[in-house]
Design a binder for these strands. Structure first.
Lengths: 218, 218
DNA sequence: ATACTTTACTTTACGGTGTTAAGTAAGTCA
DNA sequence: TGACTTACTTAACACCGTAAAGTAAAGTAT
């Protein structure tokens, strides 16, 4: 009898594991379809829950068993973007050998992310950016970490005396604004090619080192 | 009989005028309600045609007699924003006495527009900015004119030798990106107060004159 | 093996959206 | 006065996000 009970318990355990696996599988499938449709549809407006449901072959309300609501699903779509974003910034940081070079490379990485992931970038920083800076539960640290890399690089540069003594937050905001402005201009107006965006970014960085003036002003 | 005919024609004329007046009046009323609801609702998502119709006391489909569709209505809403935007930039230009001061004041005006009209700014440059740079029929020139002011100021500054010899388009894009980045950061993240935004913008401008370095780099 | 419970999903429904087509009542005009 | 035009409404379609109720199968305990 003891043996029978343990076998039963083992099958129970397996059954539980299997069902949990299926659950996470479907969740992943939904998220995957959502990312695909989101990128294909080209933004927030086109994206619809019911379309995602159709894509994965379930009824619309099933999505609610795996995500709280549309925003929650979209939040996780965008979180995928933030993961890669964070990694690219980190790679930029790591590739630099001096504080200033790190700042330059982080900026370049940021720009490249924006140029290569315009749809994600839109949602992350333009369309529904307020979503990103409020509660993202377990994922919030990742979002913030992305900027922590920039902040760390600024901190080093300041500490080692490379930068004029403005507050750290001013620098992070300023450098973020520099590159965000360029990316946003490229993405939303279409008046600028990616190559031009890179050129502008280069000038933008150069000016941090030298200013823009042809000759000193009185 | 001749007199009868002319009287008739006069009343006809008056009638026509009156009806046309009523038409333009209603159109203005719709637009006005749309602007109000758009600003109150806080953005593109909330804004609905049916709500506008209810506000002005007509059936939803009546709107289509005065505007092609929702986007067209929204386009005209936003155009109101561009008018004021253009005026503010122009005022900045006019207030400056030297090319560099003009550039600084245009940037400030831009910033102030963004800080004081966040809802309009979002639609104009963040959410549906692609709308603005395609056909706007008779209004397009106004949109472009806004940037023409900046371009003119840059042109002067370049011509008079105040700026390092980068291409004109690079400067306009760069200066636009500077201030747009700050405004966008302020509006969308809420991590920054308007006052901080102004401070960052001041530093941003100062760096154009001097760079950011504490000491020259090798 | 049977009865109960839980799980995973669907069906139905509500109130909203933009938009098109058909209908209507008043005003204009011959 | 009768036909035509104008200005508007009603009805309808195809969507949307979301909540509540229903269902069929799977799991579980006796």
């Amino acid at each position: 009898m003891n043996q029978v009970v343990t076998r039963q318990k083992r099958t129970q355990q397996k059954s539980l594991e299997r069902r949990e696996q299926q659950k996470t599988d479907l969740r992943a499938l939904i998220l995957q379809a959502a990312v695909r449709l989101f990128e294909a549809g080209g933004g927030y407006e086109q994206f619809s829950l019911r379309q995602v449901a159709e894509e994965v072959g379930y009824s619309p309300t099933t999505i609610y068993l795996y995500f709280k609501d549309k925003d929650d699903l979209l939040l996780h779509v965008v979180f995928e973007g933030f993961r890669e974003f964070g990694q690219m910034l980190q790679a930029g940081y790591d590739a630099g050998t001096t504080p200033l070079e790190r700042l330059r490379l982080i900026g370049q990485a940021y720009l490249e992310f924006g140029l290569s992931h315009p749809v994600h970038y839109r949602l992350m920083f333009m369309q529904r950016s307020e979503m990103m800076f409020q509660k993202l539960e377990g994922h919030l640290h990742t979002v913030v970490d992305s900027f922590a890399v920039l902040q760390a690089a600024v901190h080093e540069a300041l500490e080692q005396g490379f930068l004029a003594p403005y507050p750290l937050e001013v620098y992070t905001a300023l450098l973020w604004a520099d590159v965000h402005g360029i990316v946003a201009l490229q993405i939303s107006t279409g008046q600028i090619t990616p190559e031009q965006a890179r050129a502008i970014n280069d000038v933008s960085w150069a000016r941090n080192l030298t200013g823009l003036l042809a000759r000193p002003q009185p």
